[in-house]
Amino acid sequence: MILSLKKWLNPEIDAETLMSRYAKSGNNDLLKRLIELHADDLYHYLISQSDIELAKDISQKTWLKVIDKREYYQSSGTFKAWLFTVARNALFDEMRKLQRFKLIVDQNIEPELIAIKPLEHNEDMNIKFRQILEQLPFVQREAFVLQQEGFSIAQIADITQQKIETIKTRLRYAKLQFKQHIGA
């Protein structure tokens, strides 16, 4: 009863509508709902590509950019894709400052097969998963995480500004690593 009343008071609205309304009104309640919807997704993407400190920092910067640039939001794409694009740019800017960018550029050269270091003997699938994810090259890990976040290959290509074929290759290599170590 209470749950249905709550739903009636706060009907589920998709992120694009919320953002469009927020862009027009600047109402902070709408922003809070957007944060509830996507803050964890974004943080997980960022922590997969950096570390806790940087992920938190970039998360905050990204949401502040959402506030500042809300007038430039166009409802043609999904809000989540726009959010991740903003975050990715902020992350790359920060990495350039921290001089970590060279590493990423080096890894942009597609490695056909990377040699995953021997995993510590562990039956825990979650630990194995984390170890493999951490060892994937930056660009493969990025493509994999974005796909797991529900983005299509075309959207991933848009966010990362790469060709669709490149994304497909990255995903194939990433999954191959998981398959080899985790198996079906």
Binding site: D40, D41, F129
Partner: peptide, 18 residues
């Protein structure tokens, strides 16, 4: 395999939340 991978991903994500 995809389902398994997806589940593992969700668990990993749950461990890394704000």
């Amino acid at each position: 395999f995809d389902t398994k991978l997806n589940q593992l991903y969700k668990q990993h994500k749950n461990q890394n939340k704000l």
